[in-house]
Design a protein around this nucleic acid. Structure first.
Lengths: 146, 146
DNA sequence: ATTATTGCAAAAAATTTGCAAAAGC
DNA sequence: GCTTTTGCAAATTTTTTGCAATAAT
């Protein structure tokens, strides 16, 4: 049994919710994917294997996964929520190529320190943050000069 | 005449667009507000003074203001775009209280440097970024202990 | 005169919700 | 048995678009 299932089940129990096969199936599909997923993308993936599961359930399950600390919501400029694994993936931030939309994940101790100090210096106890740096990746800046 | 109008008009001319009274009115309402605004909030403000201006025009004008470098889009977790002044407001990032949703703007040279270095170290030429740190402000952490 | 802009209503896109039937405890 | 979950469809919310009328150059 996956460690993530234990975490989910603990969360459910602690919150007076019930375990269900459907939720487990959605979670498994989610965990199998290494990339960032929109709800729509996850729904398509889930549908292929479990055609009876509906979109609303995917949304509801993603909400639970976030609250249980297994998923994290990421918002870029397009207003569409993306979800990525949180458990067993240490916290990281994102660099996005503004041209090809490729992602790079970065975990940087100095950045974390600077952000924490910044919040504390303003009387805010930091909880989490969202950092996205947009720029042009090497391949795309190559293309521009061709 | 406001400096911002010149910038807007230059942008319009350079892009084969036309000046219009409506756009100027929307821009003025936008500039008068010091806070972050959603399109909806700006629309309500515009409506009060110019009841005939429609929502679609507010959206279209906000797009132009962003492209002209006068406004900047900010996205928090709720998927609603917020807009703030860019010109005459030096770049800053945001701290948000996750409890009362209050904002603090921060301009921090060290943070800027770390972000730029991070992107460059991964082969990405940084263009802009979005940093939002969520945490609990002093007032809200006080309330929790009451 | 020609081309862009506007307001409106309708469309799209993303997400949420109400509800009756089904599943979990 | 009581409570939560599910799938569906409908509702909401935010943003975009098509179009005929209007305004700008």
């Amino acid at each position: 049994m996956l460690k993530e299932e234990t975490i989910l089940n603990n969360y459910l129990r602690e919150n007076g919710l019930k375990q269900s096969r459907t939720r487990e199936q959605v979670m498994r599909c989610f965990l199998e994917t290494e990339r960032h997923l929109t709800a729509e993308e996850l729904y398509r993936k889930v549908s292929r294997r479990f055609p009876s599961i509906g979109m609303a359930t995917v949304y509801r399950t993603l909400g639970i996964l976030c609250r249980a600390g297994l998923a994290e919501e990421l918002r870029l400029q397009d207003g569409v929520a993306r979800y990525e694994h949180k458990y067993r993936h240490r916290h990281h931030d994102h660099l996005v190529c503004s041209s090809c939309r490729k992602f790079v994940e970065v975990a940087d101790a100095e950045l974390e320190r600077v952000l924490a100090e910044l919040a504390e210096s303003r009387g805010i106890t930091p909880e989490y943050h969202s950092v996205v740096v947009y720029g042009t990746c090497r391949e795309c800046s190559g293309k521009i000069n061709e």
